[in-house]
């Protein structure tokens, strides 16, 4: 995903056991913070068809 141009921080992987509630909270907060800092995702979002499919050739 990173290679095709999605910002590296948008995708994160964590391994959290069901017993690790504190880690879960921290990870979620951390991820939310990073994503908010990046702003809305623009790439890889399908736009309404009227904008992309030409009406003439």
């Amino acid at each position: 995903m990173e290679h095709m141009g999605v910002e590296p921080d948008r995708i994160q992987f964590s391994w959290i056991s069901s017993a690790e509630s504190t880690k879960f909270v921290n990870v979620v907060n951390e991820v939310t913070k990073t994503i908010k800092a990046l702003g809305p995702n623009k790439n890889f979002v399908k736009r309404p068809v009227e904008e992309t499919v030409s009406k003439v050739a």
């Binding site: 068809v49 009227e50 499919v53 030409s54 009406k55 003439v56 050739a57």
Partner: peptide, 12 residues
């Protein structure tokens, strides 16, 4: 081919 001028590959 120019067929797309009257018959686009994707047409709403």
């Amino acid at each position: 081919s120019p067929k797309s001028v009257v018959f686009p590959q994707s047409e709403v």
